[in-house]
Structures are given as structure tokens and as C-alpha cells.
Amino acid sequence: MRTVLSKELGGPETLVLENVADPAPGAGEVLVDVAACAINFPDTLIIRDLYQMKPPRPFAPGGEISGTIAALGEGLSGWAVGDRVIAGLGAGGLAERVVINAARLFRVPEGIDLVAASALLMTYGTTIHALKDRGNIKAGETVLVLGAAGGVGLSAVELAKAYGCRVVAGVSSEQKASAARKAGADEVVIYGRPPFDKEQSKALAQQFKDAVGPGGADIVYDIVGGDYSEPALRAIAWEGRFLVIGFPAGIAKMPLNLTLLKSCDIRGVFWGAFTARDPQRNAANIAELFDLWQAGKIAPLISETYPLERAHEAIAKLEQRGAIGKLVVVMDGAGQAS
């Protein structure tokens, strides 16, 4: 089978395409014919040894896949060859076949395309955990989403709207603003690129305040970090919840006096650890996501697809923050970058 391997420390240009032997499932495992592998921000980090998980080389990046079960390991029940599934791997997804512990599988309902399904788990799984379990979201609240045009950001816009909230989207271009509006955002703030000096930070805070309204944002969904975080915190509501998701713009230094003045919370969201600690609640969240999808309330946006031999291009584009929605590598070569 073909796979994309990280054999040396470095960026996407260091990845190589090779033919390797097919893996075989052991007890409690399944072999999956991969249909598609969605690209996520951790893929840009893991190949540089900057992610919390550092698999030994050579390894294939790619943390979430969709596909069809090709073989079952010894003693496994509840699954059958031909079942359509999605799974989170951490790494290993950029390959035509992968072995996965059956406990990590989720069944894909009929009527949902497998390529589209590959874009659900990490983005919407993170967001439903963030908004429901950490954000205690309620209908009628106002949600400010930073980085609202990427895969995770668009999932936050869609899910917040599905839960009956008003959504303000923060993005860096008019093209991204259009995507956020199409996903349901009620207001959009277009911000510049950091670093911000004191006056620029103050001006951005005022933009956020004007957009969320006098009551402030009940939830701030921050997947960007860096110089964007403090201005967003300044626009939070009394007893608001500031959700920390990720840091592609850097780790923010937050003035904690604002948490006192606003009586607000800063809450970390570590979806990966949550899935290991509470797999039953995570499974219920994923089932709810498929219900919302089938009800037409969410739909993952895949803006570009790539064949396996061009997987490095997808990782590079995401690293450069050029993606709108999700970038997906399709194993049969049918998808092409556009």
C-alpha cells in the first residue's frame, strides 16, 4: 500500500510517498480501507516534533480518517467487514490502509458521504465538547468565534446557530467573512494580522464590543490565541465563558484583572484528553453530531481535496493559514486541489 511518511524532522516538504506492506489487525483491532484523511492543525506540528504526541519515525501524519472495514482482528464482535466508519488516530491516517483499535471507531450513517464524513470528528467533535461540556451553551446567548473560517471555526459557527445562539465571527479577510456568513454568522469582524500595538489592540477590542453588542459575548471561542485573545476577552459578557481551544497565533498572556471585572471564566478545552477520560460522553456527542447533520443543521465544508501524493501541499496550505473549511486527502485520487 502507499503511505506518506515523516522520516526526518521538518516541514511538509520533508514528507515522502512510499510503498509499504499492508498492516494486519490484532486482537480488538480492525483493518480499514481509508477513503479520506482530513488535514488538521496538529498535522503541521507533529512532523516538526512540536505536538504533545511524538510518534517514532518513520510515521504517517493524519489524525482522522473515514473508510470501510476490510478485516477484523481476532475475537472482535459488533463490527463487520464493509461497515463504514470514521476514527481519530493521532497519526497514521495518510495511508491507503490503517489498523485501528475498534474502540476508536464511529459508525457512519447511510446517506452520508465518506469523504465528507472524514471532516467531522476532530473539528465538530472538539466544538460540541467545547460549547456543551465546557461552555454550557444556552439558546439566546451571543457567541464570538475567532478564526471562524477554518474547519474548527466554521463548526463553531454552525453548532452555535444550531443551539439557537447569535454568532459573531472573527476572520482575517473578506473571502473568509463570506464563508462565515454562509455558515450562519450574524455579524462578522475582519481583523488585521498581528503583532498589534496597544492602540491596535484597543481598536480590535472595540470592534468586538460593537459587534457583540452592549451585553457582551456570553461565550468566546478562541482557536487562534496570540494578540487576538485579550481584545476578545475585553468584549466578554458578565459571567461569560472564554474557551481556550488552540494557539496558531501564539500563546496569549491574559490580564487576569479582566476576569475579576467581568466575573468571567477562562476554560481550557482539551478534546483529545476528554475522549480518553469519558469515551461514553464523547460517543454521545458524536451521535448527536450525526443527528444534526442528517437534520440539515450542520454540514462540514470541504473546500479542497488532494490525492495522496500531494498531501504535503494540503499540510502546507493549512500551516500558512490559507484554508477555508477543511482540506481532505482522498485515497482513490478522485479529489484534486482547486
Rank of each mutant, 00 (worst) to 15 (best):
L76W: 01
V167C: 08
A249Q: 02
F270P: 00
S77E: 15
L89Y: 07
R321F: 00
G153I: 05
G63V: 04
A87V: 05
T68R: 15
Q206M: 11
G225S: 10
Q320L: 11
F242W: 08
Y124W: 03
Y221E: 02
V85A: 10
R310P: 07
F270H: 11
E187W: 07
L17S: 01
S77K: 15
D43K: 07
G335W: 12
A70L: 11
S77H: 13
G335L: 03
L146T: 04
K202C: 01
P214L: 13
L121D: 02
A139T: 09
K297Y: 00
D43A: 11
G75M: 09
F274S: 02
A102V: 09
F41P: 06
A295F: 02
E96Y: 12
L261F: 12
I46D: 00
A283N: 06
E13L: 03
L204A: 10
L50N: 01
C264A: 15
P12K: 11
S178G: 12
Q336R: 14
L120M: 14
R281Y: 00
S201M: 13
V32P: 03
G213S: 03
A103R: 13
K54P: 11
L9P: 00
G215D: 08
F274H: 14
L15N: 11
K317F: 10
T259C: 14
V157R: 04
E110C: 09
Q294M: 12
V16K: 11
M331T: 07
I286Y: 00
P12E: 11
T14Y: 06
E309V: 03
Q175L: 06
V20Q: 13
A334G: 14
H312I: 05
L301I: 07
Q336C: 01
Y191P: 05
G111C: 12
E174H: 09
D332A: 08
E309H: 11
L159P: 01
D83K: 08
Q320E: 12
L308M: 14
V20K: 14
G125K: 06
R241K: 14
Q200E: 15
G125A: 03
L308A: 10
A71D: 09
R241I: 06
Q206K: 12
T127Q: 01
L31W: 08
G92D: 02
A323E: 02
K7C: 07
D33S: 13
P25T: 01
E309F: 03
N40Q: 12
E319T: 01
E158R: 08
V224C: 09
L308H: 06
E239Y: 07
F106N: 09
F290S: 06
W79R: 10
A316C: 05
L204N: 08
I236N: 07
L144F: 05
K138R: 15
G296N: 10
A95F: 02
F290V: 09
K202A: 15
A130V: 06
F247M: 13
C37L: 04
A311E: 04
R57I: 03
Y163K: 04
Y51G: 07
K54C: 04
A249W: 00
V143P: 05
W271I: 06
A183E: 05
E158S: 09
